[in-house]
Amino acid sequence: MITNGKKYEGPGGNPYIPMLATVTKLYSETPNIKSLHVVLDDKEQMKHVSFEPGQVAQLSLFGSGESTFVINSSPLAKEHLQFTIMKTGEVSGAFHDLSEGAKIGLRGPLGNWFPYQHMEGKNIVLIAGGLGLAPLRPFMFYLLANRHKYKNIQLIYGARSPGDLCYSQDWTIWREHDSKVKITLTIDRDVPGWEYKVGFVPTIVKEEAPSAENTIAVTCGPPIMIKFVLQELEKLGFAPEQIYTTLERRMKCGLGLCGRCNIGPKYVCIDGPVFSLAELKALPNEL
């Protein structure tokens, strides 16, 4: 299935060259976030496409440029690869203006992934804010597909408002999976009709107080949220080795060559994006 870790070879053995692909579906998650389904034009290649939960790819819109996005579809599904893009800059803006059928390029998968084998037999707490659910989505699919290997699973997911929560079609299903899968939703400020938690994600982590006993926590989201979530997790007794996060950096090549995404000697594009807190603590403080 998804044992990967292969380097991206690229057409003609050139890792800078993308594979051609087509956008088959494009829809809005929130007012400034869109998800797209991508299918490689080479059907044979698409059949053998494989990636690990947490890995990223470089999407090209020729004429606008290339940007890094996490592959957030299920690693077990082969029909398409899904990406979710927030409109922030030149390239992401251009992706938002695409229509279905558009031709793009894809380099990937790139980077490392959540070390799910080391998490077997443990409770898993996933903590996400906003688009931070994107890297955790393929992981959640993996965990649910291998449900017997893991104990309790909890997802704490928050956003500014109900309209800013991504992937509602997914967590409504995950919620019903089994009694030991718990989905906790929160928004920053209460709005009429909201029936779940209200408060910032770190506050809800404190309130939910997941036990650190035999548990791995994985958190993704805005840097400021991660900072306070880490503080709460440490208070709950989580050791740095029990906490994982994904980092975002400005990246260009995705190959560890262009230089900009380093934290000390590690490159987020090839050594990451997934890091344990223990690994991060060993690096120069330059987040």
Binding site: Y16, E66, K252
Partner: peptide, 21 residues
């Protein structure tokens, strides 16, 4: 050796460039 990668479009065609950064 740090570099940047950007696209330079000219209508329906263009180039992907690598420039020193």
């Amino acid at each position: 050796y740090c570099f940047n990668i950007t696209d330079e479009a000219q209508g329906m065609h263009g180039q992907r460039l690598r420039c020193w950064d």
